[in-house]
Amino acid sequence: MSQSDQTSSPFDDVFSANAEYAANFSLNGLQPVAKRGLALVTCMDSRIEPLDMLGLGPGDAKILRNAGARVTDDTLRTLVLAVYLLGVERVLILPHTKCKMASVENDDVVHDLIEEQYGVDTRSLEFKTDNDQLGALKHDLERIRHHPLLPAGLPVTGAIYDVDTGRVEPTGL
């Protein structure tokens, strides 16, 4: 065995798991459109299982994930593509309880924490932290509702996912 064959990678576990997944792959031929017409904007938090928690399966929805489930310029760009080219007819924004991005007062707190702990100055980035989670959600809903490139009347709503109970509670915003 050569030296390179003996070297392990930090990604061996995921590539090995993929080999098993591919051996039983059953999604060949799945179309790229959202079969149920849904786009879901949610957080990258690993406690969130977007398909299972909403009774969805592969191909049912477009899932957009980022820190804090925020509607960023990139989220809007992706929604425009999803609405016009990928069958999206409605949008659900779904932040969650106990979110790190909603637990700090502002971006400065996160910038300071990263710089203090790791010596990295992240001030060139906007993290979109906001400890008023419902206020941030309302702002993000309005960004979609009033975006000039998205259809007027596109159904958009918000809800909060509870990471302790698995329940999704509509906000009525």
Results as ranks from 00 to 15, higher is better:
residue 2 S to I: 08
residue 4 S to W: 10
residue 4 S to H: 11
residue 10 P to L: 04
residue 11 F to K: 00
residue 12 D to K: 00
residue 13 D to H: 00
residue 13 D to N: 00
residue 14 V to T: 06
residue 14 V to D: 01
residue 15 F to K: 01
residue 16 S to L: 00
residue 16 S to T: 02
residue 18 N to Y: 03
residue 19 A to Y: 00
residue 20 E to G: 00
residue 21 Y to C: 01
residue 21 Y to S: 01
residue 22 A to D: 01
residue 24 N to A: 00
residue 24 N to T: 00
residue 26 S to M: 00
residue 26 S to I: 01
residue 31 Q to I: 08
residue 32 P to S: 07
residue 33 V to P: 11
residue 33 V to N: 12
residue 33 V to W: 09
residue 37 G to K: 07
residue 39 A to I: 04
residue 41 V to P: 14
residue 42 T to G: 05
residue 42 T to H: 05
residue 44 M to T: 05
residue 45 D to W: 04
residue 46 S to V: 02
residue 46 S to A: 04
residue 46 S to F: 02
residue 46 S to W: 00
residue 47 R to D: 07
residue 49 E to W: 05
residue 51 L to E: 14
residue 52 D to M: 08
residue 53 M to N: 06
residue 53 M to G: 07
residue 57 G to M: 08
residue 57 G to W: 03
residue 58 P to F: 13
residue 58 P to H: 10
residue 59 G to I: 03
residue 60 D to Q: 05
residue 62 K to Y: 11
residue 63 I to E: 06
residue 64 L to M: 11
residue 64 L to K: 06
residue 66 N to D: 07
residue 66 N to W: 07
residue 67 A to S: 09
residue 67 A to H: 07
residue 68 G to A: 05
residue 69 A to P: 08
residue 70 R to P: 13
residue 70 R to A: 09
residue 74 D to F: 08
residue 75 T to Y: 06
residue 75 T to W: 05
residue 75 T to C: 14
residue 76 L to F: 12
residue 79 L to M: 09
residue 82 A to D: 12
residue 83 V to Y: 10
residue 86 L to V: 10
residue 87 G to A: 09
residue 89 E to A: 15
residue 90 R to M: 11
residue 92 L to N: 07
residue 94 L to V: 05
residue 95 P to Q: 03
residue 97 T to K: 08
residue 97 T to W: 10
residue 97 T to C: 12
residue 98 K to M: 10
residue 100 K to I: 12
residue 101 M to V: 13
residue 101 M to C: 07
residue 102 A to G: 12
residue 103 S to C: 07
residue 103 S to K: 05
residue 106 N to A: 13
residue 108 D to I: 10
residue 109 V to R: 08
residue 109 V to N: 06
residue 110 V to W: 09
residue 112 D to I: 15
residue 114 I to R: 06
residue 116 E to R: 15
residue 117 Q to A: 15
residue 118 Y to G: 13
residue 120 V to I: 15
residue 120 V to P: 13
residue 121 D to P: 15
residue 121 D to W: 13
residue 122 T to D: 14
residue 124 S to Q: 12
residue 125 L to R: 12
residue 127 F to I: 14
residue 129 T to K: 05
residue 130 D to F: 07
residue 130 D to M: 04
residue 132 D to M: 05
residue 135 G to H: 03
residue 135 G to Q: 03
residue 136 A to F: 06
residue 136 A to N: 04
residue 138 K to D: 07
residue 140 D to F: 10
residue 142 E to F: 06
residue 145 R to Q: 12
residue 148 P to S: 15
residue 149 L to Q: 15
residue 150 L to V: 12
residue 153 G to R: 03
residue 154 L to G: 11
residue 155 P to A: 06
residue 156 V to N: 03
residue 158 G to T: 02
residue 158 G to H: 02
residue 162 D to S: 03
residue 163 V to Y: 02
residue 166 G to C: 01
residue 167 R to F: 02
residue 168 V to F: 01
residue 169 E to K: 04
residue 171 T to Q: 02
residue 172 G to R: 03
